[in-house]
């Protein structure tokens, strides 16, 4: 009997305690930079699209919500013709970012992407592309890769010798 009264009193005393609820839209929560939210496609430091349409994000995606099609410009630089993420399926696991060999696909600390129509949760490349390098400044896949693209001839990548002269046979 006493315990019941005591309980009532203890509960009543909570009237004077601080509330733990955070008034979210007015008081935004702090999200760490590595928070796994809305996915973006970043650009390399030169401003070109980082995505080389290698399909690794698509295969890594456990819910298969990434679809893209690779294409190539006339100079051999590969990029996605379209790149689609169905955010109504995305589980924000971040595997795509782990899989991405060019730091193109990145998860950002933003989760405020509710829509009244589910269809609007389908993001195309135009919706995903940002203008900067995101979390990884400085990296440019094309400076490391061995293929030739516009503005980078054979042998001009990092740690490459100039192209072999096939006409000389000196050992």
């Amino acid at each position: 009997m006493f315990s019941i009264v005591r309980t009532l009193w203890d509960v009543f005393l909570h009237s004077f305690q601080r509330r733990v609820t955070r008034q979210y839209p007015e008081q935004p929560a702090y999200l760490p930079p590595r928070w796994r939210g809305r996915i973006v496609l970043s650009r390399d430091p030169d401003g070109g699209e980082r995505c080389v349409a290698c399909y690794l994000c698509a295969i890594a995606c456990p819910v298969d919500c990434i679809a893209l099609q690779a294409t190539e410009d006339s100079n051999g630089r590969r990029y996605p013709e379209f790149f689609r993420i169905n955010f109504s399926r995305c589980i924000f696991c971040g595997y795509c970012e782990d899989a991405c060999p060019t730091y193109a696909i990145q998860l950002t600390p933003d989760f405020e992407m509710s829509e009244y129509k589910r269809q609007n949760l389908v993001y195309e490349k135009e919706d995903l592309l940002i203008s900067g390098t995101g979390k990884y400044p400085g990296y440019n896949f094309w400076r490391v890769a061995g293929v030739q693209i516009d503005g980078k001839d054979k042998g001009q990548s990092e740690r490459e010798e100039p192209p072999t002269d096939l006409r000389q046979l000196l050992p």
Binding site: V11, H14, Q17, R18, V20, T21, Q23
Partner: peptide, 8 residues
């Protein structure tokens, strides 16, 4: 109830 559960 919220008050006594430290909510709003």
């Amino acid at each position: 109830l919220a008050l006594w559960q430290d909510r709003y």
